[in-house]
Computed example of a mutant assay.
Amino acid sequence: MAYLTHVQTRHGELPEEKEWEWVVHAFGEQGPRLAERLAATVRAWDRHIRAEDNDRHADPVLTLHPAGTPDELLPAGDVLDKEHSRLVFRWPGRTGHLPAPARHTGTIAATAGDS
């Protein structure tokens, strides 16, 4: 399992004085491989999508849908099926595959307990 989060690296009174950094955490035997794959995806998104949209500084969006929601009713994105829900991760500006090394592998079946 790997996930992306952010931490504040510079504090300040005003928003422009603050800085945040994306961080990948990973667990398990495949953790290092998954962490690198997720980090590569974020780097590719930052270079090829976010850099082209400096005005909006759009960040990834996560939506939660009930388990059993048909694929055609889900927004476009990477789907993680859980026991009681379907998570859809969307990257702004991404309508297809990002340039290598990141690639979309379709729906991921969850093996861990539902959160």
Rank of each mutant, 00 (worst) to 15 (best):
E72G: 09
T69R: 15
G93I: 07
D78C: 05
P60R: 06
T111C: 06
F27C: 01
A39T: 05
Q8F: 12
P60H: 05
T95S: 03
E17R: 12
A109L: 12
G113D: 04
V61A: 08
A40I: 06
A110M: 11
P32Y: 02
H65N: 09
T105F: 01
R94T: 09
H48W: 04
I49D: 11
I108T: 10
A2F: 02
A40D: 15
T111Y: 05
E16W: 13
R33D: 10
R94P: 06
H104A: 02
Q30R: 15
H48Y: 03
A109C: 08
T5E: 04
L34C: 12
P75Y: 06
M1L: 14
H97P: 00
L80K: 08
H48N: 08
A67K: 15
A39C: 12
A112Q: 02
G31H: 06
D81P: 10
P70I: 13
V24R: 14
R33E: 12
R90A: 11
G31T: 04
P60M: 10
L62A: 09
E36F: 00
T41A: 13
A102G: 04
H57N: 12
V42E: 02
P75L: 09
R37G: 05
S115Y: 03
H104N: 03
R50I: 01
S115A: 03
F27Q: 04
A2M: 03
H11N: 13
T9F: 09
H6E: 15
Q8W: 08
V61W: 06
